[in-house]
Nucleic acid binder design. Structure first.
Lengths: 197, 197
DNA sequence: CCTGATCCTGACTGATCAGTCAATCGATCG
DNA sequence: CGATCGATTGACTGATCAGTCAGGATCAGG
């Protein structure tokens, strides 16, 4: 695969992010992606076997990085609160860095587990499991209350983060660095106060 | 409109719930709904002007009841914690009473704000606003901390509830009355501990 | 400069499906 | 009885679009 070829593949993926974010996966046509990428229709099928595979690729590219970040945070020697902060910070920074990509992942995959995300349910669950592992450790160390199952706590935590993201995605109010930082602190502060002894 | 006529409309709506829950809104055909309802294809268009209007109707029917429940809880003289408990209980009981309908509402409307729910964004926001009103009152009464904006707290709260619901929807593990009751308590307990002074 | 491979093009096809409509059914009433 | 009108039927149409394919361009190696 030559450098040019790699580039065209990337160009198509990047164009797809913009198109999916703007029109939605189900509503857009493959030709929209080709047009946005400035590439012939057929070339899309040279690099991807279907429209779905494009979304697949975008999701997995990013999600795997997130799973690694969660695992790394879990493995670190920080306090549970700092570990959860690292997770929230990763997700929020992902949005900050590339809002369109995160919109596509959240809206078209994570929150659409029905139509499309069923394929990725296992991957999505891995994220919950990673967060649950952090909570479980904190409970074992006597830092978090044990009434709540780690799985439940993980859902509450992830749910809060994703809902805040969803708010930004659809409320279309401009937000800057301070708001992002504040959101990280507030979510973690709220949920951890709820979980701590 | 005769009684029989009212019934057919209802039969179609109920069939649509089952079909949407099973196949998803985008993936199902109108003929699937007609078949499920045991009714001719054309009759669907006698009662509804489009496939979307069916989903519209299902969503609004239920959502308006929920908005009323939130408003009523807010207006009551209970403690903030009890008010939020009432909201969580309403949503969770809705799922318990009709899981397929709640699956459709959450998956196809609430969590699909992109493709379809944009139409209902305003309605959805009303729910957040109602929850935020409860938090705001609690802050004014000095019961909740003021660092967190009511809107933010509402998103965290609603996000947690919806994520737990989503877990039930997709994990397809059988759950009984005790789990539902436990979930209400745990969510409210966790979030309120995080919000209280 | 030939040859095979890979990249790239866009017109075309085949299937799908939302929505239409002309025709039938059946209840109600004068 | 027969006229009227809403309920009901399902075959049909028109548009859309994912994916194919046959061929042209470009490049690498011999």
């Amino acid at each position: 695969m030559t450098t040019a070829a790699v580039d065209k593949r990337r160009v198509i993926l990047d164009a797809a992010v913009r198109v999916f974010a703007r029109q939605g996966f189900h509503t857009c046509r493959v030709s929209d992606i080709a047009d946005e990428a400035g590439v012939a229709y057929g070339l899309v099928y040279h690099y991807f076997s279907s429209k779905e595979e494009i979304l697949d690729t975008l999701f997995l590219e990013r999600w795997d990085v997130m799973l690694a970040a969660i695992a790394e945070s879990d493995a670190s020697q920080r306090s549970p609160r700092d570990k959860l902060y690292a997770v929230a910070a990763f997700i929020i920074d992902s949005y900050r860095h590339d809002p369109e990509l995160m919109k596509v992942i959240v809206v078209e995959v994570t929150r659409a587990a029905n139509t499309f995300g069923l394929t990725h349910l296992e991957k999505i669950r891995e994220a919950y499991a990673g967060i649950a592992a952090i909570v479980e450790q904190a409970q074992a160390d006597g830092l978090f209350r044990s009434e709540i199952t780690p799985e439940f706590a993980a859902q509450a935590f992830y749910g809060s983060v994703e809902q805040v993201l969803t708010g930004w995605i659809f409320d279309s109010v401009a937000i800057g660095a301070p708001e992002f930082e504040r959101a990280k602190t507030l979510i973690v502060e709220t949920i951890c106060r709820g979980l701590e002894r």
